[in-house]
Structure formats: C-alpha cells, structure tokens
C-alpha cells in the first residue's frame, strides 16, 4: 500500500483526470474516446512505473492532438485538451521515461532521504518502515555512539510510510 504523501506530479494529475473521465463521462458512443483514453492511461501507468518505452511521450501527444479532432463531443475534446496542456511539461514526462519522478509523486520512481539537519532521531520512521529499509539508532542522552538515520535505496520501494510518520517533515524525495 502506498501512503499519500501529498506530493503530485503531472503524471498523477493526468491519470486522475483521465480516470475520472473514464469513470464519469466516457460514453463509448464513438470509438476514439474509449480506445484513446485506454491507451493514454496504459502509457501513463507505464511511465509512472518506470517501464516507459521509447516513443511513449510521442504517443501521448498523438492522442492529445488527434483525439480532439476525431472525438464526437465536447467531453472527448476536453480530455484531449487537458492531455495536451499537461504535455507542455515535456521535461517531466521525459524524466519519467528516463526513470525519475522529479517531484517524488510516483511510488515506483521515488526514493526518500532523511534530512539530517531536521531529524530529531525519534526513530518513528524506522518503526513504520515495512521493508526495514531504514537504519540508525534513536537518540539516547549522553551517548555518542548512535548512528544517524539513513534510508537504504536498495531496500526502499517508495511507499511513503516514513514520510507520513515523521513528525518534523525531515524525510523528502531525493
């Protein structure tokens, strides 16, 4: 399970818009919407998992321009316009294609780090981490051999539990 970290990126926003359209407004009375939106969602899902393939961004812009031309009604044309607008952040899409989510919103692409300056060494992040990806010792007064908290990138899967648990917002995307 993923914990909502309150962070968004263009992909999550676009996925939300299109999922909402698919669930609420998409009638299926003409072919471009159901087929085009299904394709767009599939591509967005791929990108957000870091599984994007060469040409995915070009495919999205193909859908954005042509869905507007071919769709029968306003709803389809609006969905296309939204997609086209989102594609203006092309750099972010390309980053996803390269396997990074700059905002740290896509679970499969985000990794977290502990900001040592803010960390109070309370140890709650370590307690909630389901994968045991956080190492470090809690602060005990008058002892100097405790290790600072560190998130192991190899073990972290970006679930975000630690972010939610941190009382001082000391964990952020790296």
């Amino acid at each position: 399970m993923t914990v909502e970290t309150g962070v968004e990126c263009v992909l999550t926003r676009m996925t939300q818009v299109l999922t909402g359209f698919a669930q609420e407004g998409l009638c299926g009375r003409c072919l471009p919407c159901p087929l085009g939106v299904a394709q767009a969602l599939a591509i967005l899902r791929r990108l957000s998992r870091g599984e994007g393939v060469e040409g995915d961004v070009a495919r999205l812009s193909r859908i954005a321009t042509s869905l507007g031309e071919a769709a029968r009604c306003r709803r389809g044309k609006e969905a296309a316009r939204a997609l086209a607008g989102s594609l203006r952040d092309e750099a972010e899409y390309l980053a996803h294609l390269a396997g990074r989510c700059p905002n740290g919103a896509c679970r499969d692409l985000r990794r977290f780090r502990v900001v040592a300056e803010r960390c109070t060494m309370c140890g709650r992040c370590q307690e909630v981490c389901p994968r045991g990806a956080i190492v470090g010792d809690p602060y005990i007064p008058y002892r100097g051999d405790n290790r600072p908290y560190l998130i192991l990138e190899r073990k972290c899967d970006g679930c975000g539990h630690c972010v939610a648990a941190c009382p001082v917002r000391a964990i952020e995307p790296r």
Partner: peptide
C-alpha cells in the same frame, strides 16, 4: 491523419 488515428487505436 484523423482516420489513421482511429485505425491505429483499433489495431491496439
């Protein structure tokens, strides 16, 4: 181009 788009989607 619009026609091709529909056919591309159908082939998917």
């Amino acid at each position: 181009d619009a026609r091709r788009f529909v056919l591309e989607l159908l082939w998917s």
